[in-house]
Design a protein around this nucleic acid. Structure first.
Length: 793
DNA sequence: TGTAACGTTAGT
DNA sequence: ACTAACGTTACA
């Protein structure tokens, strides 16, 4: 299509219509029949929940889909929802009815979760049938509820029949919307599903794989009203199974990622989880009071599973030498129940310790302490592959129907996701938010992991000396090389496999449930006030205390600024943690973040205002060329390796969108106010671009830019330029080609109030004094330091 | 294999 | 009737 539509007018659009764009599908009979009858393959189209954060957002106007919309001047051919508004929990349409009794869902008519489940509509991800579980009358087999999607399960019939859903052309399951239309690599994950490979992703760690039948249900229900959890796409493929598949063979899931997690109605439903365990058993999940059951189960199960995991882990990880890391949250998750606000049980602890290693299986595994970036990178792929191999082997030798292969994973998830699981229990009432817990669970630790190690890293890793100059000092050019950039950008980062999930939306619980069932006297906001004073590292520790704190501490208000400066390696889990916390400011300076990772990040941080990428590679920074971050105010790309004029052009130039209707000539960085270009080999040609595309530029750091001259300043302050009026602060320190002449140019700037010319060999003290004298007529400047001029008052 | 485009459904 | 957009198809 690109070609035929390359003409770029809207008018052309009509022509195009007539001419029939290349991609126009041939006429087809039309998608799914309505009515959701029992025919398999007749699927009810889902619709947005209207409640999740994504649904509540307004269109960004910037994404691929928005640009296609007529309202944004596009041709309106794609007909897709704004990327920022991809519903995380698409629901069944209101018109959906039970294929057995013909009636709608009636869960609103009862209070009890178990009852609700029986009369709510459930859509089978395999046969697409929508029914009230109660109408099925099938009690001998269990249904498997898909926690990822509201009202979705594998009905008892299909489950019992061993259908895999794959039959329906690799179905993704209801509500699983591929973001396939999205350009770039950002959203590749969905597709992955197809090939089975579910990769470990941050989210994976938190999959809600339920374990028991009813509990999950209950939980899900609760969540449902609060907040939809994840995105449609992920559910299927990625989330649930990712970890699992990675870790071990999961024939079935593989076939149909959608399927999954919990069994209902099945006496031994839980078997899935405990398969290894076997010790504990649920009677009838449906009728059981899940709470303690779950707890109990967990206890034992965990233990055994953990061991298995460990073993498995050892095997997987050569020598079992993983980096040590603390999975605080995991511990928290596994050990504590909602009500428990304090100390984990010794047993739990022990288990945790024993199994801590296993967690490393997850790609997240925070920053490796001593592991080199490369190493850690390599690790990922390794894991990814491993499982596959195993899968095939096991598949061959095992009854795929069994869920056994899932165990280790599950146990892991239990550990990591525990909050959710626990919630399943009756105790779940307090939070009852799978999503929240999930997020918190996995993320708390991830962050903790990286925050902690970071310290060490900081201490030991080579760091360019700080410049003596104030103003965002920057590492001197020559002296040191950029920290491990050499081994930087992870190549095989599986970003593609990451689930795209907005931050938690459900309101966190307001109270802190105690063991006695009551709430702590201090309400959430009070606690939050306290948390506000904690360092991130401490917040991470707090996140281990209990689920409630875990959620509270993940509040984005506490994470407006995330600093990963010089963090050795950026792991998937960290990325996920970042997304969840939705920082306003993100410092990734001197990290080896890859382009894909950065792209993935910024596309998910709509509120990002400050992005610091100094010392990163241009390859990574180039992600800004293709990703949208219209609200970015501060961009720090100083000392970016390979960033020269040509790259600056790529960075600043408006997107070249040839599609009809695309006439946005504005730069993606048009709202940048503070730009840091220290240490770059850029010339006036880059400055011209700045002048042209950054009309709001107020602070500009050109220190250590050896190509900057008086002429450069002349350009920036020339009549007719926006910078002439917008520039308030400029740093030209260590720009040896700048002379006193530049000072005369600065007199033209109406807003200038800070001029840093320190260490500029050709700038004289006399020149500065003269500037001050001449400016004194209108503005009083002073010398803060030698060659450092600042407006007084 | 990636994704633009489309027919049709869901909601107002 | 209209808009939004889901889920699928087919082109490149």
């Amino acid at each position: 299509m690109a070609m035929s539509l390359s003409a770029d007018d809207e008018e052309y659009e009509s022509d195009a219509e007539q001419q029939k764009p290349p991609n126009r599908p041939k006429q087809k009979s039309g998608p799914l029949p309505v009515g959701g009858s029992k025919q398999s393959s007749a699927r009810r189209r889902r619709t947005r929940c209207r409640k999740c954060e994504a649904c509540l957002r307004t269109e960004c106007g910037e994404c691929h889909f928005c640009k296609d919309m007529k309202k944004f001047g596009g041709p309106g051919r794609m007909k897709q929802s704004c990327i920022m508004r991809q519903c995380i929990a698409p629901v069944l349409p209101h018109t959906a009815v039970c294929s057995v009794c013909g009636e709608a869902g009636k869960e609103d008519t009862v209070e009890e979760e178990v009852e609700k489940f029986k009369i709510m509509l459930m859509e089978c991800s395999i046969c697409n049938e929508i029914v009230h579980p109660l109408c099925l009358k099938v009690t001998d087999v269990g249904g498997v509820v898909n926690d990822e999607l509201p009202n979705c399960w594998e009905c008892p019939k299909c489950n019992h029949a061993g259908k895999t859903g794959k039959a329906n052309k690799q179905k993704r399951g209801p509500g699983f919307k591929y973001a396939s239309n999205l350009p770039g690599s950002l959203l590749k994950e969905p597709r992955l599903g197809r090939d089975i490979k579910e990769e470990p992703s941050p989210d994976v760690i938190t999959p809600p794989m339920a374990v028991t039948a009813i509990a999950p249900l209950i939980k899900r229900k609760l969540e449902k009203d609060e907040v939809p959890k994840q995105r449609p796409e992920e559910p299927l493929k990625k989330r649930p199974c990712a970890l699992a598949s990675e870790l071990q063979p999961r024939p079935k899931l593989e076939e149909n990622p959608l399927r999954k997690k919990r069994k209902l109605f099945e006496a031994d439903a839980d078997s899935a989880i405990r398969k290894k365990k076997k010790a504990v058993k649920l009677d009838d999940p449906l009728t059981q009071k899940s709470s303690h059951l779950i707890t109990t189960e967990r206890g034992t199960e965990q233990e055994s599973d953990d061991q298995e995991v460990v073993e498995e882990r050892m095997r997987d990880q050569e020598g079992g030498k993983m980096e040590e890391f603390e999975d605080e949250e995991e511990r928290m998750d596994s050990e504590q129940t909602v009500g428990q606000v304090v100390a984990p049980s010794p047993l739990a602890r022990r288990i945790h310790q024993e199994t801590s290693q296993s967690h490393n299986v997850c790609p997240q595994a925070g920053p490796s302490n001593s592991e080199s970036g490369e190493k850690s990178q390599a690790r990922v792929p390794y894991k990814l592959q491993r499982p596959r191999q195993r899968i095939s082997n096991k598949e061959l030798s095992r009854d795929t129907r069994e869920e056994p292969q899932v165990q280790p994973n599950i146990s892991q998830m239990l550990k990591t996701e525990s909050p959710e699981n626990e919630e399943d229990g009756e105790e779940s009432k307090p939070l009852s938010n799978g999503q929240g817990s999930r997020c918190n669970g996995g993320n708390g630790s991830d962050l903790a992991d990286w925050l902690r190690p970071r310290r060490e890293v900081n201490g030991g890793s080579p760091r360019p000396p700080l410049s003596p100059l104030g103003w965002r000092r920057s590492p001197p050019p020559s002296s040191q090389s950029r920290p491990q950039l050499s081994c930087s950008p992870p190549k095989n980062v599986q970003m593609e496999r990451h689930v795209i999930r907005p931050p938690p939306i459900s309101p966190p619980p307001d109270g802190l449930p105690l063991e006695d069932g009551r709430n702590h006297v201090m309400r959430r906001e009070v606690w939050m006030a306290v948390f506000t004073h904690l360092a991130h590292k401490d917040l991470c520790i707090c996140m281990r205390v209990c689920k409630t704190w875990n959620r509270w501490c993940c509040d984005k208000r506490l994470w407006t600024r995330i600093d990963l400066n010089r963090c050795k390696s950026i792991t998937p889990l960290m990325l996920s943690g970042i997304i969840r916390r939705q920082p306003v400011s993100l410092d990734l300076s001197w990290t080896n973040i890859s382009k894909k990772q950065l792209s993935w990040l910024i596309n998910r941080l709509p509120g990002l205002r400050f992005l610091l990428l100094s010392g990163c590679s241009w390859v990574a920074v180039s992600a800004l060329c293709t990703s949208s971050c219209p609200l970015l105010r501060t961009l720090d790309v100083q000392w970016v390796e390979g960033l020269k004029d040509a790259q600056m052009k790529d960075l600043l130039s408006p997107p070249t969108d040839n599609r009809p209707g695309q006439t946005d000539n504005r730069s993606k960085l048009r709202n940048v106010v503070d730009l840091r270009l220290a240490g770059l080999d850029i010339t006036d040609s880059s400055l011209r671009l700045l002048i042209r595309y950054m009309p709001l530029l107020s602070r500009l750091d050109l220190s250590y830019c050896n190509h900057v001259t008086d002429q450069s300043v002349n350009l920036l302050t020339a009549a007719g330029t926006t910078t002439r009026d917008s520039l308030a602060e400029i740093n030209l320190s260590v720009c040896n080609r700048v002379t006193d002449q530049s000072l005369t140019y600065f007199k033209r700037c109406g807003s200038i109030c800070h001029i840093d010319l320190r260490y500029c060999k050709q700038v004289t003290k006399e020149g500065c004094e003269q500037f001050i004298a001449e400016m004194s007529v209108s503005v009083q400047f002073g010398l803060i330091e030698e060659k450092l001029l600042r407006k007084l008052g």
